[in-house]
Design a protein around this nucleic acid. Structure first.
Lengths: 229, 229
DNA sequence: AAGATTATTGATAACTTATTGACATCTTCT
DNA sequence: AGAAGATGTCAATAAGTTATCAATAATCTT
């Protein structure tokens, strides 16, 4: 796990202490301060990954600080506050905060909300869910399948079928399961469709389609996609 | 303000109604359903900007749905739940939710949290303002596209369409995604517009528009802009 | 307000994919 | 080995999708 740096802006010493202990235990690096003025200096010099801001700062409203940060950065900001009223929550969120937690708070919930906020910022490129199986690669987000590094041209049903195999490698899948998943409920008995498409897929990915390496027949049962990469 | 599309997954009719009325009033486009199964179909076909998920869905736990969505998308997910216990909140956030609101909730707070979550996702581009793809170059800041070093004369829709392709090269984009992004919410079914504009774009950038090198057709699905420069 | 540009619409041709059926080949069981 | 059933193969046809272009409507310019 990446070493995140969290900046705490909190003027209540006991809460600050609690946060520091918690973050030490969970191995988040952290820096802290108790005033808006120092907060901005620290923020600029340390470039943290997430801010925890107490709204009740003595030297000015925390919302001002949030707005200032938002002028220059998209860093996640989690607000801690003793004030529970709706208006305050809305003002803080609209000032630029990403989350708002009221005191007293559960440490575990705070940590979960921090994780949720950190997750979003890292890996700014879209999640690309890729599965590699020997010479075959699927990128679900791009809806793309590569065979020997070349893009494989597939019809919609061919794509869905191969995708289903790639998501279930080395498992025997019954004809019914495959038909239901790829064609939909009601097609469970259309075995001929399946035969035809297995045939075209094999032509596209098997060296020798009478001795398939990937799509194995389980006679009487179904098929199994073997992945020995 | 950009027209956002919010997807509601909620099986309590009265809460669903409340959300729908609220979103209508605040001019958020919205689509809704009351089961996990339909939710995924709607999600894939409409590509919403934010999800509101009720955790207590009757046909399966909402957390499963959240995980499924997270496999393919970074769309903001706000959970609504009657359950207030810490464990449930943490599980939902770690499944991939971005925020967790307990019922009964304040409509205004919900709206503020939605704004906070939407804010983050937009404006993701505009970081680097130039993209080069083979013979095609776009300068986003100058709103200018060069083809073979010459300025390409494009109508507004042509520009938006080609820009969307250039920001998403080598990905299969569904008709719905493209129509929503270029024409806006509500145009998802106007396939003929898309065909017409694909045709004019091809005439401008393809050597041989019957054998396109850039804009490939994915029959039954959409188009893909190939960038093999 | 006229002229130019751009967007929308509809008709039809060209193409791609899905379905079907006929027959060959392979497996399994006795 | 031979029969019965299961699977593979392929080509024909049906169904569905996409490309193209021209006409009309809407919008923008000056």
């Amino acid at each position: 796990m990446k070493n995140y740096l969290i900046q705490i802006i909190e003027d209540d010493p006991s809460v600050k202490k609690l946060l520091e202990i918690t973050f030490r235990e969970y191995e988040f690096n952290h820096i802290s301060c108790d005033s808006k003025k120092n907060a901005m200096i620290l923020f600029l010099s340390h470039n943290p990954d997430l801010l925890i801001v107490d709204l009740g700062l003595s030297d000015g409203d925390g919302k001002e600080f949030i707005k200032q940060v938002r002028e220059i950065s998209k860093v996640p900001i989690v607000v801690l506050s003793a004030r529970h009223d709706e208006k305050e929550i809305i003002l803080a969120l609209d000032a630029g905060a990403d989350d708002y937690i009221t005191k007293p708070f559960s440490v575990n919930e705070l940590l979960a909300r921090i994780r949720a906020n950190l997750r979003r910022t890292t890996n700014d490129t879209a999640i690309s869910s890729k599965i590699v199986c020997g010479e075959i690669e699927i990128d679900l987000a791009a809806r793309n399948i590569l065979f020997k590094k070349e893009q494989l041209k597939l019809t919609p049903i061919e794509y869905e079928l191969l995708k289903y195999f790639l998501l279930n490698t080395n498992k025997t899948l019954t004809h019914q399961q495959i038909l239901k998943e790829v064609w939909g409920v009601g097609y469970q008995n259309e075995m001929q469709y399946l035969r035809t498409y297995i045939n075209t897929l094999r032509k596209k990915i098997e060296q020798n389609s009478t001795r398939p390496n990937y799509i194995k027949t389980e006679s009487g049962i179904g098929y199994r996609f073997c992945c020995n990469g």
